[in-house]
Every structure is written in C-alpha cells, then in structure tokens.
Amino acid sequence: MAVVTLTIDDKPVSARAGESVLAAAREAGIRIPTLCHLDGVSEAAACRLCLVQVEGRGRLQAACVTETAEGMIVRTQTDTLREYRRMILELLFTEGNHVCAVCVANGNCELQSLAAEQGMDHVRYPYLNPARTVDVSHKQYAIDHNRCILCTRCVRTCDEIEGAHTWDVAGRGTLSHIVADMGQPWGDSVTCTSCGKCVQACPTGALFRQGSTVAEMTRDREKLADLVTARRDKKWTV
C-alpha cells in the first residue's frame, strides 16, 4: 500500500495514500475539531470547523475532504483558525434556539463541548430566535428542530448505513430544515424502520429518544462506525 509522509503542526506524520488530512491527524494524536464529520458515513464538508492551512494553497482546506499528499505541510492551530472556529460556533449558537440548561443532551452535546474546548465563552452576534417546531409523532423518537445545526449526519446515516433514506433537507439558507419522507411527520414515515441510527448520529439534542429528560440523552456513536467496518470486513465479533 502506498504511503505518504507529511507534516502536521510540525510533527512528521505518515498516511495511506488517499487518506484525508483529518484521518492522518487523528492517527497521529492531533485533534482537529469537527461537527459534520461522522465515522462511517460520507463527508459533507459543511460545518467548516476542520479547516486547516496547507502551505502553498491559497484557500483554507477542510481537513475532512482534503487528501494527504507527499511533503504536505499542514497547520491546524493558527490564531486565525482558532478565531474562525470560535466565530463559526458563535454563528451556530445564534442560528438555532440552544438552551442547554433544559436540553436532553446537556453534558453530552458535541456543539456544547466544542464551544467549551474552543474557548467560545460568549456570543457577539444577535440571536436570531427562529420559530421552529418539534416533531414528537414518532413512537420511539423525536426531533426538536430548535437544536438542529443542519450537519446532515442523520441524513447520511439513514441513507448510507440503514439504507432507508428517510431524511432530507428542505428549504434554503437559514430556512433549511430536516424533513422525513419529503415533508411528512416522522411518525407517518413509511420508510423509517425505527432503527434509531439517526438518533445515535446526531451531535446535539435535536434527535432523541422519547421520554428522555434534561441531560439524559447519551449516545453510542462508535457503534455506527463499528457496524460499517463489520459489514465491510465481514468481522462481526469485537
């Protein structure tokens, strides 16, 4: 197998040809923040938190979709990148209605923990306070659009791992929203198998098991990637 060597944050790193900068960094123990990336499904390159600087390239590159190359020099922690990541998180907090204190995912939310990790301690832009709905029509699960950050992890998980393709994105711009079966209440969806994979995939408190109360919604995201690996390699024992 072809291997390339590159430098990430001054550390020499080797990677399999075709592997992403994100994967190579992780293997080398270098953490790049992500939100829309989910192990086991395709990339959306939508959250832009994983942006890094690659020497010789004019634009910042999303580490999740940038292929490693021989001799590449990558920086993941410049002042500008850190500032931009904080600003992107601020924008996400202004866009939805994120009231952590009453959220099922409090303490177990990727958005919340990234904000803490990246030092986003206050929001400088006005909150948009959109009027969004909650759909509790499904027997086991629910979606609270107020907490959705449109990462589309649920869409890709349902389509690519469960094969049901229940979810899609409708609308444009900041009016975009996740819909089941092209706009039906989730409970009426004929494609949904109630497998719960999308609920596992969601980084925030948007998708949750019915009956969860504040801070109760925990997840087991590795299961999704384990499932994909097991299917691919035909290895079902751990």
């Binding site: 959306a44 390159a45 939508a46 959250c47 832009r48 992107i88 924008l91 996400l92 202004t94 866009e95 832009y125 006005p126 948009l128 950050i149 449109l150 994105v169 609308g171 444009r172 711009g173 900041t174 009016l175 975009s176």
Partner: peptide
C-alpha cells in the same frame, strides 16, 4: 446572498444573515 444561500455550510448560511 442570504436568500440564495443553499444552507449547506455554516459561514454562508448564518454569516450572510448576520
């Protein structure tokens, strides 16, 4: 631009509105 943003990526979707 805010009206026409497709809504996929955060900086454009929310940034143009702000």
């Amino acid at each position: 631009c805010a009206d026409e943003s497709c809504g996929k990526c955060v900086p454009c979707r929310v940034g143009t509105v702000q």
